[in-house]
Simulated scan of single mutants.
Amino acid sequence: NHSFGTKTWTSPTSQEISNVGRTPLPFPQPLDREMFTASDFDSDTFLANRRHVTLDELKKELTAHLKSLKSELVEMINRDYASFIDLSTNLKGVDKVIEEVARPLGKMREEVQGVRTTLQGVIDSLESQLSHRASIREKKAALQLLINIHESVRKVENLLLISGDNASATASGDKSGSNVKQIERVAIEYNQMQYLVNRGKDLPFVENIDWRITRIKDTLRINLSSALRLALLTIKDQSST
């Protein structure tokens, strides 16, 4: 010990000198099987945990672990040798069993395919019948429309006193023009006829009777003109008297 003024300096002991510069080294876990089979095993982490171990020591450690695993495998085979032998023996009749199972399965597959083919045929037949019925309904609707158009045109012609079935036939005078109620009835039937004709405008029948429709329009225009003239004359006569 040495004194410097009021302070005393004590020499370090040999134990304290030996501890200077020492740092605790990590001790890696011993190798085991679970370490390598773990789902989170990472080779970089494994080597980092053994960075203080030399490569030779690490190689020896891994080699020893490999020998240990081989020994365990041999012991397992020796312990369960009879089971391994029985396994190969039991597999001898597997092919025959598989063949026996596959035969009815193949037959069943053919039957299922046959049923599917039959069902598909039934479905195709139903679809064909439904399509045929839809076509019949459309044709019936078109036929009914033709009948309605024909009846409507004939009714208007009768109201307008149009006779004859050719384009040269004309209305018989303008008697209908003098009857107001008759004109109203003709107007109603004419509107109905126009509605039906517009519905069937793409039908050949409507094109064939177009001349009759034109004749109706011309006759109706003449009758309306006559009715208007008569109305004006009546008003004039009444005002003069």
Rank of each mutant, 00 (worst) to 15 (best):
P24M: 15
R212G: 06
A134W: 12
E72H: 06
H150Y: 15
F27I: 15
L47F: 08
L126E: 12
I147E: 14
V94T: 05
P28T: 02
D40S: 02
V180K: 09
Q129A: 13
S68K: 04
V53Y: 05
R51M: 03
K175S: 11
I123L: 11
L145A: 07
V20T: 05
Q29V: 10
T118R: 05
V53A: 01
L119S: 02
A134F: 13
H132I: 06
S239I: 13
H2K: 06
E61T: 00
G173M: 04
E157R: 01
I188G: 04
D174N: 13
G173L: 03
A169G: 06
T234Q: 05
F41N: 00
A142M: 06
F4M: 00
L69Q: 02
L160Y: 04
E72F: 07
L130S: 09
M35D: 02
L232A: 05
L203M: 12
N208W: 09
D237F: 11
N223M: 08
G121T: 01
R215T: 14
S163Q: 13
Q238W: 14
I17P: 03
N179W: 14
T8M: 01
S39K: 04
R229H: 14
T23D: 14
L105I: 11
I147W: 14
N198Y: 12
N191H: 13
L233T: 10
L91W: 08
V186P: 00
V153I: 05
E111W: 09
Q15Y: 11
G177A: 00
V74H: 03
L159F: 07
I162W: 12
E99F: 07
L224V: 07
G93T: 02
M193W: 08
A102S: 11
I213F: 10
A64Q: 08
Y190R: 01
I222K: 04
V180C: 04
S176Y: 13
N158V: 09
I136S: 03
V153K: 01
V206C: 04
T13Y: 04
S168W: 15
R137T: 14
N90R: 02
L62G: 00
L196T: 01
D40G: 00
V94E: 13
D174A: 03
I235D: 09
D32C: 04
G114N: 09
E100Y: 12
S18I: 09
